[in-house]
């Protein structure tokens, strides 16, 4: 298979045993999300490909997660709904920038894949992963969690409704258990 894909990402589309990334995509479409900002994460790989391929969405690769918080503030000013995809380590990069949507009462939907919890092999992931939920609460972001594969789509859609109907900031944390143990021999 060719390595070519939108934005030059050197990833190939492979059959995935996971259905929930597609459920997140469907939830974003139902919620009329037009701009998707992301810092890549293995858990979001399929979802990013789907968003890149969608002509009604603009998928923007960021250098750091806080750029996405600012970008989606601009999207909302212009009438677009957005979603921000990241890994839990990226939440720490966002904290001060979150004061923009929190103070301005702009909706923000974050979909965060967790590290540093279920079966984590890398101890450097634990300080941020174990404190992700607390620091989000501390800055004023509502936190919802999806742990079972069949609930992911519903949780993301409900979070989108909450964010866009109430002008609030909502993060969906996707438990590391959804991804299972990472096989580092590959």
């Amino acid at each position: 298979m060719s390595a070519g894909s939108p934005h030059g990402a050197n990833v190939t589309k492979e059959p995935s045993p996971r259905l929930w990334p597609g459920d997140i995509y469907d939830a974003l479409k139902r919620a009329d999300v037009k701009q998707v900002a992301y810092v890549p994460d293995a858990g979001h790989k399929e979802l990013i490909l789907q968003c890149q391929a969608d002509r009604d969405m603009t998928a923007v690769s960021l250098t750091t997660e806080q750029e996405g918080v600012a970008m989606l503030a601009g999207a909302w000013l212009g009438g677009d709904r957005g979603a921000l995809l990241m890994q839990s380590s990226g939440v720490g990069n966002c904290i001060n920038m979150l004061s923009v949507p929190v103070h301005c009462r702009m909706p923000l939907l974050m979909v965060v894949t967790m590290r540093g919890e279920w079966g984590e092999f890398n101890p450097w992931q634990l300080p941020m992963g174990q404190n992700t939920e607390r620091v989000l609460h501390d800055i004023g972001v509502y936190v919802q969690r999806a742990t079972a594969p069949d609930e992911v789509g519903q949780v993301v859609y409900a979070a989108a409704q909450l964010a866009f109907s109430s002008n609030c900031q909502v993060a969906v944390l996707l438990s590391q258990r959804l991804l299972g143990f990472k096989d580092w021999s590959k």
Partner: peptide
């Protein structure tokens, strides 16, 4: 005009999101 009073480092990216939306 939308004036940012916080979020230092945000301005260019707010512009990008707005430019994509409009």
């Amino acid at each position: 005009t939308f004036c940012l009073w916080g979020g230092m480092g945000a301005a260019a990216m707010v512009g990008l999101g707005l430019a994509i939306a409009q």
